[in-house]
Amino acid sequence: MAVEENSFLLTTVDALVNWSRANSLWPLAFGTSCCAIEMMMASTAARHDIARFGAEVVRPSPRQADLLIVAGTIVKRMASRLKRLYEQMPEPRYVMATGSCTIAGGPFYYNSYTTVRGIDEIIPVDVFVPGCPPRPEGLFYGLLVLQRMIKEGESVAQPGVRRKPVMAALPPAMTLKDIQKEIAALLVERSEVKTRGVSPNRIWEERA
């Protein structure tokens, strides 16, 4: 039976499924460093209480989680493990990168021989939450943005089609690409910052 693209049945199912997915984002307990403490603070501490959004069921096993909150620096040795964790999660899965280390390497950007400069080099990211570490409120804003994205974004007819990642604390129109372009331009423009050697797996240069 052929169902039309925008039939009433499918859109209603879409709405229901997206509503349920948005409101029950079970995070995977995955924290590597300081951001993990703020994530714990947000997800569990009595004052902030992520349970209000239905996201307090922190699953230790990636098989049961929907949301991978990457909290803390990812180094080369951990990168493969992060990717594996992501692959172990069942679809639909969402990734939130919290903190400047996961976004771009943060304070460990220069002169570090291990830090991965942005986890978007390893796995696709849905929401970036800046901060070092981000406050719990920042994490909530990221979660709400993700909820909005899920509610608007996906459809049963086209699973896996996703909006572009957004920076949670920036205007919603801003995408990662814009920011990367800006950073690249800044690096070229500012003459006092010279980098010796360009890492082969930095992709932003090619994009810019």
Partner: peptide, 8 residues
């Protein structure tokens, strides 16, 4: 190390 992005 080219990965290191040494700041000069």
């Amino acid at each position: 190390d080219p990965f290191m992005l040494e700041l000069v």
